[in-house]
Simulated scan of single mutants.
Amino acid sequence: MEETWNEVLRDLSVPEDIATKWWSQIMVQYTESARIYHTMDNYLRKKFEIYDIMVKDNISERSAFVLAMFFQHYEHDTNVYGDSIDKNVEHVKNFFKDAGINHEGLISTVVGLLGAACESGSSKEGIDAYFQDLELAALGASPDEYVEYITDIEKEYSNMPAHFYRSLRLKVLQTLLLIPKIYSTDLFYEKYETQARENIEKEINEVLK
Rank of each mutant, 00 (worst) to 15 (best):
M1Y: 09
E3H: 13
T4A: 10
E7V: 07
R10I: 10
D11N: 15
S13P: 00
S13W: 00
S13Q: 08
V14K: 08
P15C: 06
D17L: 09
I18P: 00
A19H: 05
I26F: 07
V28C: 04
Q29P: 01
Y30N: 05
Y30V: 03
E32R: 15
E32G: 14
S33P: 00
R35C: 01
I36H: 06
I36C: 03
D41Y: 05
D41S: 09
N42S: 13
Y43A: 09
L44F: 10
L44M: 12
R45Y: 11
K46R: 14
Y51A: 02
I53Q: 12
M54K: 08
M54S: 11
I59H: 02
S60Q: 14
E61S: 14
S63N: 15
A64R: 10
F65C: 09
V66Y: 07
V66F: 10
A68E: 05
A68N: 06
A68D: 06
F70C: 06
F71R: 03
H73M: 06
Y74I: 04
E75R: 13
T78K: 02
N79H: 08
G82M: 09
G82S: 09
I85N: 06
D86Y: 07
K87T: 15
N88H: 05
N88S: 04
E90I: 05
V92E: 03
N94K: 14
F96S: 03
K97Y: 09
A99D: 12
N102H: 13
E104G: 02
E104W: 05
I107S: 04
S108A: 15
S108K: 14
T109F: 04
T109V: 13
V111S: 11
G112W: 01
A116P: 02
A116K: 10
C118K: 15
C118R: 15
S122L: 13
S122A: 14
S123D: 13
K124A: 11
K124D: 08
G126K: 08
G126W: 02
Y130D: 09
F131K: 03
D133W: 02
L134Y: 04
E135C: 02
E135F: 06
L136G: 00
L136M: 14
L139I: 01
L139T: 01
G140R: 09
G140N: 07
A141I: 00
A141F: 11
D144H: 10
E145Y: 07
Y146T: 03
V147P: 00
E148H: 08
E148M: 08
Y149C: 02
T151N: 10
I153T: 03
E156T: 01
E156F: 00
Y157R: 09
S158G: 04
A162E: 14
A162H: 12
Y165K: 05
R169P: 02
L170N: 09
L170S: 07
L173M: 11
Q174S: 06
T175A: 12
L176R: 10
L177F: 03
S184T: 13
F188I: 03
F188M: 05
Y189A: 04
Y189N: 12
E190W: 03
E190Q: 13
K191W: 02
T194C: 08
T194R: 12
E201F: 01
I204H: 04
N205P: 00
N205L: 14
N205K: 15
E206V: 15
V207Y: 06
K209R: 12
